[in-house]
């Protein structure tokens, strides 16, 4: 691998200071970033590891909100996130067991891979992304494939999920990579239903507002039966055409509604 320096601060303040250096890049679990470095698709000169910062780890629940610190691994959320079963189940099915022991929620959210699972949960739950400087609503945070509202050197310190009455995530796995070919997160709150779609669109994770309206009126799989998803801006590749992905959005939404608990 090409040469770079690594620093391993033990506080968010020290990490932010280290990220002020030229060409510095935050490293969380590294399950996406390290393969990216090997391919030289990213070539920072300094990596600032967040794995030694205790204040970035752990989850807690209060007043109906689950707060997950940025460097909390998927395995921890799967194991300890039982107060939000739909989210814990999503975390338990990201990658494989060894990946889940390193990969973190902050890393996933900050990368905003168009096929990643966590962005769908954050957007579908109307979560708040907390950084070292501010709080950002999920609706404002995700700005298209690999693009977020984060500024240079800004760190995701936590994600706050309002716990819904019911929720579920359904992922149609691309059979080789096991990433989401299409994934749909459905969450039912007292004031309405949110539906977030990952894997499908050239714009990355997004909400499906027609389904949200239909499901808010009638939370049943049949409610989205007559809705069609436009294929205009869907990803098309050798794994599936745009029309196929558009169709899957409807199918996975129905399955998520049926599975929601």
């Amino acid at each position: 691998m090409y040469s770079f320096d690594m620093v391993r601060p033990t506080s968010v303040a020290d990490a932010v200071a280290a990220l002020g250096q030229e060409d510095a890049q935050a490293l969380s679990g590294g399950q996406t970033l390290i393969p990216t470095l090997k391919q030289r698709l990213a070539m920072p000169s300094v990596l600032v590891s967040l794995s030694g910062i205790d204040e970035l780890k752990g989850l807690s629940v209060s007043d109906g909100v689950m707060e997950i610190k940025g460097a909390t691994t998927h395995a921890t959320v799967a194991r300890e996130g039982g107060d939000y079963p739909g989210l814990a189940a999503l975390a338990a099915n990201i990658g494989d067991p060894a990946v889940r022991n390193r990969g973190t929620i902050g890393g996933s959210i900050a990368n905003n891979d168009p096929s990643a699972c966590y962005p769908a949960a954050a957007l579908g739950s109307g979560a708040t992304i907390v950084t070292n400087t501010r709080e950002i609503a999920a609706d404002e945070f995700f700005q298209g494939m690999f693009t977020t509202a984060l500024e240079e050197g800004e760190i995701v310190t936590a994600v706050r999920f309002p716990i819904p009455e019911k929720a579920a995530y359904m992922k149609f796995e691309q059979p080789a990579s096991r990433f989401a070919l299409v994934g749909v997160f459905v969450a039912k709150y007292a004031d309405g239903v949110r539906v977030a779609v990952t894997g499908a669109s050239n714009d990355g994770v997004h909400r499906w507002s027609a389904a949200e309206e239909a499901l808010s009126a009638n939370f049943a799989p049949d409610a989205v039966e007559g809705l069609s998803v436009p294929a205009d801006n869907m990803i098309a590749d050798l794994h599936g055409s745009a029309a196929y992905r558009a169709h899957l959005v409807g199918v996975m939404t129905k399955r998520a509604v049926a599975a929601a608990d």
Binding site: M6, R8, L27, G30, Q31, I34, P35, L47, S49, S51, G52, A75, P97, A98, V99, N101, R102
Partner: peptide, 14 residues
């Protein structure tokens, strides 16, 4: 915890 050693830096195992 089981992890993939090819996707972790040695400095992080301090």
């Amino acid at each position: 915890a089981d992890v993939k050693a090819c996707t972790m830096f040695a400095a992080e195992a301090e």
